[in-house]
């Protein structure tokens, strides 16, 4: 009899504990939506409200993704704002920015660390990729909040539209047909040719080094130790920095034509001593942001479509 009562009591207690350990977060959705507002008011309290704001949450059965937006759409301003916040946190708090944001989310949402995820981006126009795209999550290996993502320098789109094709005096219908016919194998061949064009274009410059990665999509072409591509040249060649440009080109076949997205990451290093490691190159963005934007615009609007046209013409 006594043993039976003991078993009943144990069963009664375990019932509560199993309920407490429920991992399904959907059941508490309303609570999380409410806590998002509290998170925003905390951001305002600590003085981050001007720079950061919450932009909705996504609830999965074992994870909650909180979207944070930097309050600017300009890539340059976003870069500066992001750098400033990170630095301010480093100066004033024992925790880093990502740790503070994540730990605060864990405590406000009342969730366990592995369940929390913060997606930090800047505001963008529709269809444009954000220049700042970070994910902050808990790494069980190090027991710390980890921030992983990208600071994209400059992004430009270029789409081959009929208007452009007309300008080049090529039979519009014929070209549109070929564009429609672009299958994966043809796209691969096109990218291969594009890689060759990159090598051809830069091989005249001062001893550049190439790394062309042909993967399924995108095509990545890395050119190192070129001078005078983005940064304006001076009188002495030795004073010009060695540049490292990474072109990421994505080619998609769509109904309108070929959709080409090109992203250019520019870095620069010492002009006197050729940088020995990749780390020795610094980002061009704050210092040469204007030059990089101009170069990127010229490249994607003029040079890249020209190359594609040449490749298509050669094929026919």
């Amino acid at each position: 009899m006594r043993a039976a009562i003991q078993t009943l009591i144990i069963l009664f207690i375990t019932q509560f504990t199993t309920q407490g350990q429920s991992t399904d977060l959907f059941s508490d959705s309303l609570f999380f939506y409410e806590q998002e507002r509290n998170y925003q008011s905390w951001l305002n309290d600590v003085g981050l409200g001007e720079a950061l704001s919450t932009d909705g949450i996504q609830i999965y059965h074992n994870k909650i993704a909180l979207h944070l937006k930097l309050q600017t759409s300009s890539a340059d301003t976003a870069y500066w704002l992001f750098q400033r916040i990170v630095k301010d946190f480093g100066d004033s708090s024992p925790f880093s920015m990502e740790q503070t944001l994540l730990y605060r989310m864990i405590s406000i949402m009342e969730i366990r660390p592995p369940e929390a995820l913060i997606i930090l981006r800047n505001r963008t126009a529709y269809g444009q990729l954000p220049s700042i795209d970070y994910r902050i999550f808990y790494d069980p290996a190090t027991n710390l909040a980890v921030m992983k993502g990208a600071l994209r320098s400059i992004i430009r789109d270029s789409i081959l539209l009929p208007a452009f094709i007309l300008n080049t005096k090529i039979n519009q219908q014929k070209l549109l047909n070929t564009v429609h016919d672009f299958t994966n194998s043809k796209l691969y061949k096109l990218k291969q040719k594009l890689g060759e064009k990159f090598v051809e274009h830069f091989s005249g410059k001062t001893e550049p080094r190439f790394v062309v990665k042909l993967c399924q999509n995108p095509l990545i072409c890395e050119v190192m130790n070129v001078k005078g591509e983005v940064v304006p040249t001076g009188y002495f060649n030795i004073l010009d920095p060695n540049e490292r440009l990474v072109f990421t080109v994505e080619v998609r076949s769509e109904r309108k034509g070929l959709h080409i997205v090109c992203m250019i990451d520019g870095k620069y290093g010492s002009g006197l001593f050729r940088p020995r490691t990749v780390k020795a190159y610094r980002d061009m963005v704050p210092e040469y942001a204007g030059e990089l934007a101009r170069y990127s615009q010229q490249f994607t609007q003029i040079l890249l479509p020209e190359w594609i046209m040449q490749i298509i013409n050669d094929e026919q």
Partner: peptide, 10 residues
């Protein structure tokens, strides 16, 4: 200064 001019240092 020369290293700075040749972008060795910011």
């Amino acid at each position: 200064f020369f290293m700075w001019l040749t972008k060795g240092y910011n």
